[in-house]
Design a protein around this nucleic acid. Structure first.
Length: 488
DNA sequence: AATGCGGCCAACCGCAACTAC
DNA sequence: GGTAGTTGCGGTTGGCCGCAT
């Protein structure tokens, strides 16, 4: 490798760069044995050289930077430096509230596709977004460490409740209302269909609860006696690790149809996937205003105290992404680690293609790639199409279109409202009572219909019946019902 | 003042996709 | 079609800084 003084002089003169600046830039390289290239932080002189180079030759040809300028950096490093720091109109500084919300929303939809996200954020780089996200993740993980396992709470709750009931059982005027545990009210004996081995709520509802818990600082949870939570059986979910679905592949935010939280269970050669209904909706519903963690008040039977401080400003990680991969093990709170495993798993070809109809794939392309640079679009389009699998390849594909229609039918033959009437302890039964639920089903008037093939009614008595009420649902969402005026 | 810890950020690494030959 | 070089992406690491103890 020729990098003598003469070489530098000759090369820099070709590019019109002051050779002394190159020598200065290359001084003190902390390079590996035998490597002529510098690593580590860039200095101003190096930046100046790179900027001169780009001004002269334009972006690209990064590998020739070293050759043409003598800058002791590899092309890769130069590209990164340019893209992340030197490029004009880069936006520096903290992310705005809107940006944060959009990042979280997009991450819920497309996962760790930082470059794609960056395409939606003029002036922001994928690295910026990635760093932002990882920082939040760390914070969330740390908060989670302070949370006790789920089973602990339930056990304590059950024991505590039993004790209280014993103490009050002789009283004819026992309070018909739920006994508050600190700020959280728990269903009372009046709703005695609540049993440890039985799922009381449709999974999504429970997940909403966890969402709330996870979004709440751990200390706050401890203070509320919510450092652990409901019956772990209730939130059990069966997931085959190799068949995890990135609900994030759906990008329907503009539709206000919260599909990513829909409770999926794809069954394919014995593999099960369950994604719970409800996480995302409670979050996105609040995106338009200041974010409030999905309050426990949204959960039938769990009422947040009005005095509970509402979180504004900084958003916490949306816990709707919790994959529940480890929930099979009792007494385990949905770990953020497992969540990460889920989130960061590479897109599964089968699920990618099966979770969305071809039409929705088109929609995805339109939304996702519309604003991208031609180059990025090319690459991404290639990546997408290379994975495209026709709908016929989906072995099991049942279509259920959820909607706000309260009479929409669930796989077990229940209407949406009847489901919540039946399976929620506070069985008010009015639509208003389920307003917090309705958005979960979509807000575009999507009808719920079903194809009953392969569907086995699960109104049985086993402890999975209620779970199966939803988990038996293999659904994908057809945008054919979507209003076209919202698809632009 | 010293130390530890967490947040933030820049940069590197490995891999995959793309392109040119 | 095969191969080498280039580019892009996502994961990870390490350093710096501020804050709390």
């Amino acid at each position: 490798m020729c990098m003598t003084t003469e070489c530098v002089d000759r090369m820099t003169s070709e590019v019109g760069i002051d050779s002394t600046s190159v020598k200065e830039a290359n001084a003190g390289r902390n390079i590996r044995e035998g490597s002529p290239l510098k690593k580590g932080p860039w200095i101003k002189a190096e930046d100046a050289i790179l900027m001169d180079y780009v001004a002269k030759y334009g972006e690209g040809n990064w590998s020739s930077v070293h050759r043409r300028t003598g800058l002791a950096r590899c092309g890769k490093s130069c590209r990164l430096r340019w893209a992340n720091h030197l490029k004009p109109d880069l936006k520096k500084g903290a992310f705005t509230q809107e940006e944060e919300e959009l990042i979280i929303e997009m991450h819920a939809k497309i996962g760790n596709k930082w470059a794609r996200m960056a395409a939606e954020f003029p002036g922001r780089t994928d690295n910026d977004i990635k760093n932002f996200w990882n920082t939040r993740l760390k914070r969330q993980r740390r908060a989670e460490k302070h949370m006790l396992p789920l089973g602990v709470f339930f056990q304590e709750f059950s024991e505590d409740k039993q004790n209280k009931e014993l103490a009050t059982s002789s009283s004819a005027n026992s309070d018909p209302h739920p006994l508050p545990i600190n700020n959280v009210e728990i269903p009372t004996a009046e709703n005695r269909n609540f049993e440890p081995s039985q799922q009381l709520y449709p999974p999504g509802l429970l997940n909403i609860g966890f969402s709330s818990f996870l979004d709440t600082p751990a200390t706050s949870l401890r203070d509320q006696g919510l450092n652990s939570s409901w019956n772990t059986h209730s939130v059990r979910s069966t997931v085959h690790s190799s068949k995890r679905i990135r609900g994030s592949e759906a990008w329907f935010s503009d539709q206000n149809v919260d599909l990513s939280q829909a409770h999926h269970q794809y069954q394919n050669d014995g593999s099960l996937f369950t994604q719970s209904l409800g996480f995302y909706s409670l979050y996105t519903r609040n995106l338009t205003s200041n974010y409030h963690p999905s309050s426990a008040g949204d959960i039938p039977g769990i009422h947040a105290s009005s005095s509970e401080p509402k979180l504004k400003g900084k958003l916490e990680l949306p816990s709707f992404q919790t994959p529940m991969t480890s929930w099979d093990s009792p007494s385990s709170v949905p770990s953020i680690e497992s969540s990460n495993t889920f989130i960061q798993s590479p897109p599964n070809e089968y699920t990618d293609s099966c979770s969305l109809s071809p039409q929705s794939s088109d929609l995805l392309h339109a939304i996702l790639y519309g604003s991208q640079t031609p180059k990025a679009s090319r690459n991404n389009l290639h990546q997408e199409t290379s994975r495209d699998v026709g709908p016929d390849s989906c072995p099991v594909l049942r279509e259920i279109r959820w909607g706000t229609n309260p009479d929409a039918i669930t796989p077990s033959g229940h209407t949406i409202t009847s489901v919540f009437s039946e399976y929620t302890p506070s069985s008010g039964g009015s639509l208003e009572d389920h307003q917090s639920i309705a958005p979960l089903m979509g807000e575009n008037g999507c009808n719920v219909n079903q194809e009953m093939d392969n569907f086995t009614p699960t109104a049985g008595n086993d402890d999975t019946s209620n779970h199966d009420l939803f988990s038996e649902t293999d659904m994908y969402f057809s945008p054919t019902d979507w209003p076209h005026d919202k698809m632009e």
